[in-house]
């Protein structure tokens, strides 16, 4: 059974700490080359192999990550 996930990152509230990047088992996330309104290199998904494990959201100090998941 395949699992597919997706993350929605509130990039304006993200402080670009990078803790989620390290926490992701599938290296889905990376800090953007661009910055948000506060000047932070926000986190964003760069791959489509998210499995919706929520690890990124769990370690995010600012609660900016919302996670979705479906079993296909």
């Amino acid at each position: 059974m395949a699992i597919k996930g997706a993350v929605v990152i509130d990039k304006e509230r993200c402080k670009g700490c990078g803790v989620c990047v390290v926490a992701c088992p599938n290296n889905v996330l990376a800090l953007s080359k661009n910055v948000n309104g506060k000047g932070y290199h926000y986190s964003e998904a760069i791959l489509d192999n998210c499995i919706g494990c929520t690890s990124c959201a769990l370690v995010c100090p600012d609660g900016v990550i919302t996670v979705y998941k479906v079993k296909l």
Binding site: G5, A6, V28, A45, D48, A57, G63, T66, Y68
Partner: peptide
């Protein structure tokens, strides 16, 4: 954004 089709309330697994 990847997999935008699954971003629906019924698939939500984590939210602040």
């Amino acid at each position: 954004m990847f997999n935008p089709d699954i971003i629906k309330p019924e698939n939500l697994v984590y939210k602040k």
